[in-house]
């Protein structure tokens, strides 16, 4: 559905994307994880035909992004943080414009607004919406014409955990309906919760790519088990027979409150690979 082969992009002397290579198959969620300025939005702009690139191949729906037909473009939904909404118009009127453009029946507007949780704000002007509601409206606009590919640029940036969770559910629902989703984020929990495949992007280079779980397992160098005992004491045991025996004894004597494995999360993997945190440098 989406393919990138050795894509390079520069702004003047500054190379912002270097040798980007990946492919996404139908019905999968692909997450591009990286800190601000890593090149995430630039890549979305390239894949949606908003930006040209110097070298390589980028294709969407098996066609080069530079030669997408009108019909193919109608099969793509895009939500970017920088995209605006018509402030003076209501949520319904905002969607009516795009329903007309995409030849979508107007009764779909209501169901789409219901899906994104804006049923009660249908007639509210966009200027009166909160940031979370505005994001939902932008999502509704991207979902309205039931595209087969959706690009989401930081869909939950700056939102509260509850709104974030509901947006995650919407994204997963879309995946369930067979939609292919490309999302960028700098939130590693979001990437781990949603994505089938994650690419870690640092300074325009993909430093690692794979499923979030595999990636965390791959970089689990310490292989320790952390125990928190009822007495309040914390223990860290290495993998091995001796540790297993010790844990068995502790379990038997009902001394353990919690047990955790110590594989790293995506944040730690990113830190290990780049020396940078996903949100700000170390």
């Amino acid at each position: 559905m989406i393919q990138c082969e050795n894509v390079y992009k520069s702004f003047g002397d500054r190379t912002v994307l270097s040798g980007i290579h990946f492919s996404i198959s139908k019905g999968k969620i692909f997450g591009l994880l990286g800190p601000s300025g890593a090149g995430k939005t630039t890549l979305i702009k390239i894949l949606t035909g908003q930006l040209s690139f110097e070298k390589g191949k980028a294709s969407v729906l098996n066609n080069s992004v530079q030669n997408l037909t009108d019909e193919e473009k109608k099969n793509i939904g895009i939500m970017m943080d920088q995209f605006g909404v018509y402030d003076r118009l209501s949520c319904t009127d905002n969607l009516k414009i795009f329903a007309d453009i995409y030849s979508v029946a107007h009764n779909v507007i209501q169901s789409t607004l219901e899906m994104v949780g804006l049923k009660n704000a249908m007639n509210m002007k966009a200027m009166d919406l909160s940031k979370g509601m505005r994001t939902r409206l932008q999502l509704a606009r991207a979902f309205l014409h039931s595209p087969s590919i959706i690009f989401l640029d930081e869909p939950t940036a700056g939102l509260d955990p509850l709104t974030m969770k509901s947006i995650h559910k919407m994204i997963l629902d879309k995946k369930e309906s067979g939609c292919t989703i490309f999302l960028t984020t700098h939130n590693m929990e979001e990437a781990a919760a949603l994505c089938d495949t994650v690419a870690l992007l640092n300074e325009g280079v993909i430093v690692e790519i794979g499923s979030p779980k595999e990636m965390c397992r791959k970089y689990n160098h310490h292989k320790t088990i952390k125990l928190h005992l009822i007495s309040g004491e914390d223990m860290e045991l290495m993998h091995g027979k001796e540790s297993a025996d010790e844990i068995y004894q502790l379990l038997k004597s009902e001394c353990i409150e919690t047990i955790h494995s110590s594989e790293p999360n995506l944040e730690t993997v990113f830190l290990e690979l780049t020396g940078r945190k996903l949100q700000g440098d170390v």
């Binding site: 920088q82 995209f83 605006g84 018509y86 402030d87």
Partner: peptide, 13 residues
């Protein structure tokens, strides 16, 4: 300024 024009262009207008 409000980037609604880009949305229209992306919607194939």
């Amino acid at each position: 300024e409000k980037n609604t024009l880009r949305v229209l262009m992306m919607a194939n207008v």
